[in-house]
């Protein structure tokens, strides 16, 4: 294992050059969103907690970590990748997570995981980034490992065989 793995904690993001590996562990309702450009060998991952930052921006006086929220995370990740030389029209996306770990009590019947998934799909569509594959929903936790050189995303869960998407 020559390649050092970059760990992305909850509400964090990271970018790497090929042959980097980016890892996120213990995703429940959180989403691991991967954006990458294979031709340039550049990729990044965001470990997103919530769909939207607009409400929190008001309450927290604009001080908030960008990778917590889907909208600001996508923008931050895109900016980082473009800064490193990725070509916008080459960038594609994959997403994993968004599970419903426990019954929903919030009265709407929609879990945070489902909200995350729906909102990220919407945001990617709006920015014309193709979502090439995903492994979302269900009621189990996931860990993911992203290989920048191939764009391969390996999804691991307890008691299940690992999955490549």
């Amino acid at each position: 294992m020559g390649t050092k793995k970059i760990r992305v904690g909850i509400g964090e993001g990271a970018v790497a050059k090929s042959p980097g590996i980016i890892v996120a562990e213990g995703l429940g309702s959180c989403i691991s969103l991967v954006l990458y450009d294979v031709s340039c060998g550049l990729g990044g991952m965001a470990h997103i907690l919530l769909p939207c930052s607009s409400e929190c921006k008001k309450t927290k006086n604009g001080v908030f970590p960008p990778y917590w929220y889907a909208d600001s995370a996508i923008d931050a990740l895109l900016k980082e990748l473009q800064g490193m030389g990725a070509l916008t029209h080459n960038i594609i996306a994959k997403m994993v997570g968004g599970a419903r770990m426990f019954p929903v009590y919030n009265g709407t019947g929609i879990s945070i995981g489902e909200q995350n998934v729906a909102h990220i799909r919407h945001l990617l569509k709006k920015r014309l980034i193709p979502l090439v594959s995903e492994d979302v929903g269900g009621s189990h936790g996931r860990s993911v490992e992203f290989h920048v050189h191939s764009g391969k995303l390996v999804v691991m869960a307890i008691g299940k065989e690992s999955l490549e998407i």
């Binding site: 213990g26 309450t59 927290k60 908030f64 189990h140 936790g141």
Partner: peptide, 23 residues
């Protein structure tokens, strides 16, 4: 009570998100 066995963070992240801001 509702029981699940899974990765610790996956059990908790929904609740962390529920606090709305993590603070």
């Amino acid at each position: 009570p509702e029981l699940r066995t899974d990765m610790i963070q996956s059990l908790l992240d929904e609740s962390i998100a529920d606090t709305a801001d993590g603070f």
